[in-house]
Design a protein around this nucleic acid. Structure first.
Length: 579
DNA sequence: CGGGTGGGCGCG
DNA sequence: AAAGCGCGCCCACCCG
């Protein structure tokens, strides 16, 4: 055992002994280091009030089954230290930040909360709320009434939960599932680390952008000067007082002007001939920047860099870090969401404020046409897979999909989203004729969804089962509409969800490589793009590391299938220069 | 007054 | 109830 006398308890459990440590962060650091010095010591078990490592976990998820098949090798992502601990956490979003604050970094983990959601949906159920349990003998974290436990009792519960999940994952017999669980958990570590690191942000640049757009920061309760001028223009155009923020008042004003508009969406107003339209559009665009990403937002979400001496250096006085909170798997498709900070909706108008610190660079990389490339892969459509060799998939496919790049794009996007408007329906028919396998893949996902069935991503993430209400409305007009809507959702789910898991594997690989080679910090992730902040002299290396990580992610998911998913890095000083 | 909903729009 | 998927966040507005 690695538990040292007086630091905690050790107890034998069905899946292997676990040790509880009073000072978990210190234990983590010591055990991680020991695992590197002595990779064979995989039978050590330890843990703490919020984390447990089991020897069963270590064997199961790393060395033990490596010879038995490709699956565990995939879930290790080619790990250099396959015997290293995989920490079992009830909820990394809650449990990992304190460890980071104490200076402990986890190499890899199993996040029981995230795994529970994936497994529940695989089983066609909704995940229960996360609870820490009272009765240590009763079972898993996710049963019975919530009542907090800690110390050894929680360890027992963690152990039981892990064993229960392991059994259910095996019973599901989905080849990619353990890879998905590992990738989701790696994402939880990345998210916590990125929130802690933060995106390098220059408040001086942000203030200048806001001043150019809105005028100086107003006193509380007032509109900025330029925004007020836009509001006045709207009022003048209508010829009477109204609040441009009020949809109701704006709609009434258009009706009073004799214009029969159903709503005030910008696309609806595009066909309306009235002097207020242009002013209103500009007003709303600027008002959004002000309210959602203005000075108040920066006050709330941008904090000190944490770098020593930064406060003393007047040249760095405006420097800070944007620290949003990410929700791993926040969307049903597995995409991340944000719980404050709005990181995933950051408007281009303020991206210039995201700047590398002196002597450093940002390496921003995005995957071009990620979803159609993945559709090619998951459908096995040979012709479309061959086309992924091209840098621009739409241009490559244009001769076979309507002749122009823009038409090929509509054809593919409409096939993936279920679009029918305009000439989409006709272009989707071209998809059916030229790429039948890809077409059939999304069509069958839609049909399954319409009938209330379950569809899964490539690695096995599963769509939520329809609720009772859905079945009750089945033979009504509401039911028809619900079925159509669910078909569109499941159609898109298999593509968007597979893209999300490709990105998770990419993050896992990139995180480890950057850390092991000490190249830089992962600071931002946005569905299909990543940003690394690194010393200028490492920027070129980081670029190739990103490209290699993308290739490795593709191989992890699809093996030798000749699909190509390039991630093109760009070295910049400001995020606004990317793309 | 506080919470919930809908409109509108930012991002991919 | 949208041009077709997934989100978050702000405001106005409505309700209790």
């Amino acid at each position: 055992m690695h538990g040292r006398g007086g630091e905690g308890w050790t107890m034998p459990l069905p899946g292997g002994a676990v040790t509880y440590h009073h000072d978990l962060a210190a234990a983590v650091t010591a055990i991680e280091a020991d695992a590197r010095r002595n990779p064979a010591s995989g039978d050590t078990a330890t843990g703490g009030a919020i984390a447990a490592r089991t020897d069963t976990a270590a064997r199961e998820l790393s060395g033990g089954r490596r010879t038995g098949g490709t699956e565990s090798a995939r879930s290790d992502f080619g790990h250099r230290h396959p015997e290293a601990p995989r920490w079992v956490l009830a909820d990394a979003a809650h449990d990992y930040p304190p460890l980071l604050n104490a200076g402990a970094r986890l190499d890899r983990c199993r996040d029981l909360r995230l795994a529970e959601r994936i497994l529940s949906r695989v089983e066609g159920r909704e995940p229960p709320a996360v609870t820490a349990e009272s009765d240590p003998d009763a079972g898993t974290l996710f049963e019975r009434e919530p009542e907090p436990v800690d110390g050894p009792a929680l360890l027992v519960r963690l152990q039981a939960t892990w064993l229960d999940q392991r059994r259910r994952a095996a019973a599901a017999a989905i080849p990619g599932l353990s890879t998905l669980l590992a990738a989701e958990s790696a994402g939880a570590l990345v998210a916590a680390e990125m929130s802690r690191t933060g995106v390098p942000f220059d408040r001086g640049v942000h203030d200048r952008l806001l001043r150019d757009l809105l005028g100086p920061r107003p006193t509380k309760g007032m509109r900025p000067r330029k925004l007020q001028a836009l509001a006045d223009k709207v009022v003048d155009a209508f010829g009477h007082q109204l609040n441009p923020d009020s949809t109701k008042q704006v709609l009434a004003a258009f009706h009073a002007a004799g214009l029969d508009v159903k709503n005030t969406h910008s696309w609806e107003l595009s066909s309306v001939d009235h002097p207020a339209v242009e002013a209103l559009k500009v007003y709303r665009e600027h008002a959004r920047v002000w309210s959602a990403f203005g000075w108040n937002w920066a006050d709330a979400w941008v904090s000190a860099t944490g770098a020593p001496g930064a406060d003393a250096d007047p040249g760095l006085a405006d420097r800070g870090r944007f620290r949003p909170v990410y929700m791993v798997g926040g969307a049903d498709t597995g995409r991340w969401g944000t719980d404050g900070g709005g990181a995933l909706q950051l408007p281009h108008a303020v991206r210039e404020a995201i700047r590398a610190e002196p002597g450093w660079k940002l390496v921003a990389a995005d995957a071009a046409q990620l979803e159609p490339r993945l559709l090619a892969a998951i459908s096995g459509d040979q012709a479309m897979i061959a086309a992924t060799a091209a840098d621009d998939l739409y241009t490559e496919l244009a001769p076979r999909l309507g002749g122009e790049r823009s038409k090929a794009k509509i054809a593919l996007i409409s096939a993936m989203y279920g679009g029918t408007a305009g000439d989409a329906a006709q272009l989707v028919q071209l998809m059916r004729d030229r790429f039948p396998a890809a077409f059939h893949r999304v069509e069958s996902a839609a049909r399954t969804g319409e009938k209330g069935g379950l569809v899964r991503t490539w690695l096995g993430r599963t769509v939520p089962a329809p609720g009772e209400r859905w079945w009750q409305t089945l033979n009504s007009e509401d039911g028809t509409r619900a079925a159509t809507g669910r078909g569109r959702f499941t159609r898109n789910f298999i593509v968007q969800g597979t893209a999300a898991e490709w990105a998770l594997v990419l993050l896992a690989l990139l995180r480890r490589e950057l850390h092991e080679r000490g190249l830089g910090e992962l600071v931002f992730f946005l569905h299909d793009e990543v940003v690394v902040h690194c010393p200028a002299e490492h920027a070129a290396t980081v670029g190739s590391v990103i490209e290699q990580a993308a290739d490795a992610a593709t191989r992890t998911l699809f093996g030798d299938l000749p699909v190509r998913i390039p991630l093109r890095p760009k070295v910049v000083d400001s995020y606004s220069e990317a793309k």
